[in-house]
């Protein structure tokens, strides 16, 4: 098991243990009231949502859910750039850029020219997803959409940093 996965499991275990202890304490002190039941059900739902997001974040299949406007829990940042490189070549190039970056490649779809890369969770963030989509403008030009989305909660400017950093890396990589 990777070091990052161990850290994530440790954080989740600590969080859930604390939450369940708090729930147990509330019920023990004041019994099963409507308010307590509401607090506990909301708490469990939020935790469940977090676990599901962490489980499915690496698959492009769940992109529409993560980037959905209805998913108002998550912060998103979009950056669109144009390139003179064809989309086939760009797809391969961006995979190379991901390999050289701090992002970890998670999933890709060559037919739709989509890639998803992730950042690792730590004690300050649950990690972010970086979605890359390439569209052809004409035979020689392409449009790349970088979308960084948090897995859970407000981004604290991490999404902007991610898109800026990735774009810089991409630009730098064009010096060959």
């Amino acid at each position: 098991m990777k070091k990052n996965q161990l850290i994530l499991i440790a954080i989740l275990t600590l969080l859930f243990a604390f939450n369940f202890y708090e729930m147990y304490r509330i019920v023990k002190e004041s019994g099963w009231t409507f308010l307590n039941a509401l607090i506990i059900s909301v708490s469990i739902s939020v935790q469940l949502l977090l676990v599901l997001s962490l489980m499915f974040r690496r698959k492009l299949y769940f992109k529409s859910w993560i980037l959905s406007k209805l998913n108002f829990f998550l912060g998103k940042e979009v950056r669109i750039v144009q390139s003179e490189i064809s989309k086939d070549l760009l797809f391969e190039k961006l995979l190379e850029v991901i390999e050289e970056s701090d992002f970890e490649f998670a999933d890709s779809n060559k037919d739709n020219f989509e890639i998803v890369a992730t950042t690792f969770p730590n004690f300050f963030t649950w990690g972010e997803n970086m979605y890359i989509e390439i569209k052809a403008i004409d035979n020689n030009r392409s449009e790349i959409t970088f979308t960084s989305a948090t897995i859970f909660g407000y981004s604290w400017n991490r999404n902007k940093k991610n898109t800026d950093k990735f774009f810089e890396l991409f630009e730098e990589s064009l010096t060959i």
Binding site: S83, E84, I85, L89, E92, K93, E96, E171, S173, L174, T175, I176
Partner: peptide
């Protein structure tokens, strides 16, 4: 020791710059 992708970009004249080492 340069990737085929990078050489393709260079060949098409789509790179930003070329290093002396390259």
């Amino acid at each position: 020791d340069i990737s085929v992708v990078n050489l393709s970009i260079l060949k098409q004249g789509k790179g930003k710059a070329m290093r002396f080492s390259t």
